[in-house]
Design a binder for these strands. Structure first.
Lengths: 233, 233
DNA sequence: ATACATTTGTGCTAAATAACATGGTTTTAT
DNA sequence: ATAAAACCATGTTATTTAGCACAAATGTAT
């Protein structure tokens, strides 16, 4: 945990959404109170049931927010990419974490104590609006996801997930390969199905030339078809 | 739509959470800008795709927030009771409504233009914190619900819904009858199952003496058992 | 390099749930 | 009061999906 090795300019580049809204004095305050943390691949960042203490801004890497469900099955609730924030919801709701977070790949994150954020919120409305906007967007996504996961059939759910990953992490330079390589199990946990069914359905999509698979590398060939499958469920 | 027929004292009693945080001047501003609206039983309050314009505070009655899913099936996302607020998420996220709202029973609501709320938010941090807290709680509930609806089996989902309704609307004077009378279809839409299965499972619960049913009136007899069924899924 | 663990792929079976059909009951509208 | 509509109940069948078993491939540690 390296504290304050960075200049304010660097911090500002790391967390622009929050930094922008602050006064010079507030920036100084924040600069005295953040820490940088690194997480290894697959490392747990926080667990269900723990007390939330920090706002976490992901500087680098990819993170999954998930929930352990019935019978050890886990459900990926949302994913985080660089320059996105997480870990704060439970604190604001005055709850323990109801989800867990883990690193898909090696990550660097900036941690800010929630008490510091609370202090800043008292005097900075623009920052408050940032959180209101963010929570509102996340709630919309969560509501959307509830219906998608419950009402669509397997093919629809998997198609949905592939498009979801494309939106979240984008594509590689070839404009068609997903920029994230997930295990079949993670893909299943994202799509609310068993690993077997994720594998099977993925193979079917490949056989239908909707995608191409090479190990964990997934190439989206016919995105319109994916949208159609996702839409009809 | 009756505008400003009420004194400020009455308004304060209607919407205490927001009113409390305001200065005298802000109260005056709000008093000039709210309207009271009545909705009939089953009347739609807003539809998916419409533009959000007002913060709605339910003064009286019960409301469902739902989403039309695949093949005409609808999913109840959350429910609102008196003194709760809704209709604002989409505005803050700068989206059209992704859900619809309708009255379970006759309702009275206080509508405040979101532009007015935005103005108040600029100068009132306590109000901003109110929305942050509210959205954070709702997001937690939504995440919880996603897993419950996707991973639990029919009995677990229905048990969950009955407990959910108890938490949301409470019980009648007898301390065991749910204070809301839903159609089997609404109950099914709340629990992510077909109407037939809601009816069947409800009958099973009654046969097992976990609940008693008299038309739409549902008496929770063995709440511990319901909790257990909900927990094991 | 070799053994060991993890992940991926495939087929089969069983369980859960939706879909459909039909009839009775209650509510609503005229 | 009566007809029509909506709702509730139950049985049967079909579909979807989970669960399991096992083999092949890949990754990992010594």
């Amino acid at each position: 945990m390296a504290k304050n090795e960075n200049t304010n300019v660097e911090i500002g580049a790391y967390i622009p959404d929050i930094w922008m809204s602050l006064t010079a004095q507030q920036k100084e305050f924040l600069a005295q109170n953040y820490t940088i943390h690194k997480y290894k691949k697959n490392e747990t960042i926080y667990c269900e049931g723990e007390k939330p203490t920090h706002l976490i801004c992901l500087l680098n890497g990819k993170v999954k927010i998930y929930k352990e469900g019935v019978g050890g099955r886990s459900q990926i609730i949302r994913v985080i990419k660089n320059n996105e924030y997480f870990g704060y919801r439970a604190f604001f709701a005055n709850e323990d974490f109801v989800t867990a977070a883990a690193a898909f790949e090696p990550c660097t994150a900036c941690l800010i104590p929630m008490t510091v954020i609370l202090d800043l919120l008292k005097e900075n409305n623009e920052l408050a609006m940032f959180f209101i906007r963010q929570l509102s967007k996340d709630l919309g996504v969560s509501d959307e996801r509830t219906v998608n996961l419950t009402q669509k059939h397997i093919r629809g759910r998997l198609a949905e997930s592939l498009l979801f990953l494309k939106d979240a992490y984008g594509l590689e330079e070839d404009e068609s390969t997903l920029s994230i390589y997930l295990s079949r199990e993670d893909l299943a946990n994202l799509s609310n199905m068993t690993t077997s069914n994720a594998i099977r359905t993925l193979s079917n999509f490949a056989a239908e030339k909707i995608i191409a698979i090479d190990g964990r590398k997934i190439k989206l060939i016919d995105i319109d078809k994916l949208r159609k499958i996702s839409k009809i469920g």
